[in-house]
């Protein structure tokens, strides 16, 4: 297979990132940013003012890139994944690790790095948010790349991005939950 032959970086494939900030602190910050009327108004205002929206998005990008390796998919899954970005998985899996994780937890595509989902599950469970990992994550809407996920979240567009299923009926998955309604 020649893992050793692989040159550093390259591939253009996403590389798993271990966040620079702890999960507990991240959940704490989430409370500060939690959607409320004020934020919703701010989001609506930002969407009316293009330059402001661009600046705001730039700040969000820098902050989340530094902390989580964010790639600006615009539909943040961080609150459901122990604040570990699934878009840094080379397969961009949103629902858990693939079957190729090595016995020591390394990524099959980047054997020098730890699988991002191994990190996510450890962080989620350690922070008491392990159950979030069972949510079914809807497919990504690729129109949202490079848009502000904070604005999207405050505007309520992320509601139902992760869907729970109940014990009684393990498949209550309705099409409206799966379908990405056009905006």
């Amino acid at each position: 297979m020649g893992f050793g032959e692989q040159r550093a970086g390259g591939g253009g494939w996403p590389r798993p990132v271990v966040p620079r900030i702890g999960a507990r602190l991240s959940y704490g910050l989430h409370r500060v940013l939690a959607a409320n009327l004020l934020y919703r108004r701010l989001a609506a205002w930002l969407e009316r003012r293009r330059p402001a929206y661009r600046w705001f998005t730039r700040v969000e990008r820098v902050a989340k890139e530094q902390l989580y390796g964010c790639r600006m998919c615009g539909q943040c899954a961080l609150p459901d994944t122990g604040y570990t970005c699934p878009m840094t998985c080379p397969k961009q899996l949103r629902n858990g690790p693939c079957g190729g994780v090595a016995a020591d937890g390394r990524c099959e595509v980047h054997p020098d790095l730890v699988c991002v989902w191994v990190t996510a599950i450890e962080r989620g469970q350690a922070a008491g948010h392990g159950a979030d990992l069972d949510l079914l994550q809807r497919p990504v809407d690729h129109r949202e790349w490079d848009r502000s996920s904070w604005v999207n979240y405050w505007q309520g567009r992320d509601d139902g991005l992760g869907v729970a299923y109940s014990e009684d009926d393990p498949r209550p998955l309705l099409r409206r939950e799966l379908g990405l309604s056009p905006r």
């Binding site: 690790p97 090595a102 937890g105 393990p170 998955l173």
Partner: peptide, 16 residues
Amino acid sequence: APPPRFRARRLAKKVS
């Protein structure tokens, strides 16, 4: 594959 205890839950997700 790691994480070992998560593998059954991952299948549970697929079954749901």
